[in-house]
Design a protein around this nucleic acid. Sequence first.
DNA 1: CTGAAAGCGCTAACAA
DNA 2: TTGTTAGCGCTTTCAG
Lengths: 327, 327
Amino acid sequence: MARIDDVARQAGVSSSTVSYVLSGKRSISKPTRDRVLQAVKDLGYRPHAGARALASSRTNVIGLMLPLRPGVNVAVVMEFASGVVTRARELAHDVLIVTADDPDAIGRAIGGSMVDSLIVMDVESNDPRIGVLSDSPVPVMLIGLPDDPGGLSCVDFDFEGAGRLAVARLAARGHTHLALIGSPPSVYERGTSYARRLDRGYRAACADRGLEARVLQTTASIAAGQEAIAELLAAHPEITGVVVHNEAALPGVLMGRAGLAEPLDVVAIAPESIATGLGTRLDLIALPAQAIGREAVDLVMAQSDEGAAAQTRLLSPQARALDPSAS
Amino acid sequence: MARIDDVARQAGVSSSTVSYVLSGKRSISKPTRDRVLQAVKDLGYRPHAGARALASSRTNVIGLMLPLRPGVNVAVVMEFASGVVTRARELAHDVLIVTADDPDAIGRAIGGSMVDSLIVMDVESNDPRIGVLSDSPVPVMLIGLPDDPGGLSCVDFDFEGAGRLAVARLAARGHTHLALIGSPPSVYERGTSYARRLDRGYRAACADRGLEARVLQTTASIAAGQEAIAELLAAHPEITGVVVHNEAALPGVLMGRAGLAEPLDVVAIAPESIATGLGTRLDLIALPAQAIGREAVDLVMAQSDEGAAAQTRLLSPQARALDPSAS
DNA sequence: CTGAAAGCGCTAACAA
DNA sequence: TTGTTAGCGCTTTCAG
């Protein structure tokens, strides 16, 4: 592997000049720059990431802490992650995976100066990691919204707004008896904030309209979705509209709906890529997971590069009718 | 952040002793070691990853190149990835994500000495990356089986065997008219080897038994799965058994089956975690994605640590009846 | 506009 | 069993 001195010699300059050409931190005359870049290309020179990190205390790597425990919806996780990775690459950064269940991982990544910043996914209302993260020497970005962010930045979807919007959509179409087919009980119990926030928005919007706010916590499986519909309509045949916030159960709900005599109006909250995969007509409130991932990168980079302050950003919900037959 | 000299001073030893205690590359008397470890703990010392990489030319990071293009089944990708990440952590390694669509990524990761080895997912029959990877200075492990591995190691599922096994299962249960609901046409066209290999095994096993080998390339969506069943039985009502190798369409196939008058025997090839999520009885040939990920790590580490030779390993298929109601 | 040289924090000979 | 020391390859003052 060629080193910086090889490039310098080949271009007839000093190694510092090569460094400056590559970093652009100093103006270099065009002829010199051209010679250097040519030498870089000729030799296939790649700066050694470790040496660079050691000398500059910057790694150009973002840590991404993601949940790998059973029960999380991997498709949704991947959607966020791909937003992070894609945006990071656009900004010339790489992404190091840090698994959430490794207790020492945070320390290793941050303390070991492996990353310039850290994005933490799947943050719960009362997340035990927040304490450790709060006095991290590098900027930390939470995806999710804990009860107390402890001074850390957060990005997330406005789930409360999404719950309200879902009810508004159904109410506007004349429905007066609704239900929410929600996250699994385990997710509620774990205190995952998005489930609670969606619930809150849904209930508030129902209350505003004097509607009864039924909620069915539903296991994450297609079968559970089917059962939920059957169960719901058996107990409450007057229900004509449901909100579904459970990606794994959604197909089952739609299957259940297909078998009904009376029409059932469904508003789903899910990433668009997942909803379109269902190939069904659907009123969708798209969970912009990719966009949130990208936003997380932008915000955390602003903090590490420009020393921007911590902030919380919620992305607003937007509904759209999905109609695969129309495309 | 405490540095190695701080630890050395605190423990009353030299920095090299600290280094040796931490790496275990030299025997250290118990009292000395204890003092060092105590100092490490007291100061919250973390070795600087870059400095370590620079001095030792080892990063303890594995690169994982994964497909992020639209159309890949993220759930399946994540399954492989989680196997890689989990196993890597067990072996005290971290994982750096390298996206496949970034043409320069391989060079940056390998040339920049960011990783000790590279695992490449979703390798196609005639993958253009193989050329570059073949003369990589670090060991490379392919997940997938190209026509010509170019001297690189490969791990994959024995899809051909899985195709044979699926037919054997159905034949053993007395079926004589079968069909394969396979990958989307785009996957076949892209030359993704697993689709072809499964196809080959399926056809061979059919041929062995004098059965007609019908194949329906199916789009990756639930709706497509439903349509596939309808279409298939409309054209060939004599079919009583199908093999499904299309995770996204599988739920649709099962929905379609539920609506039939005659029973339809289904053998699915999919990761177990995906199949169990369906909550249905199912004859499953589990695609051991996690195990493959783990195996990839083990093999590539054997290469980088012990200089083991490149090799190809295919994991054998195993069938099992899935019955959620029984659990 | 360019160069020389002092580290960044660690590992691994080489010595003792 | 432990210490001394010369780098690893780069960035960035400080000089010119």
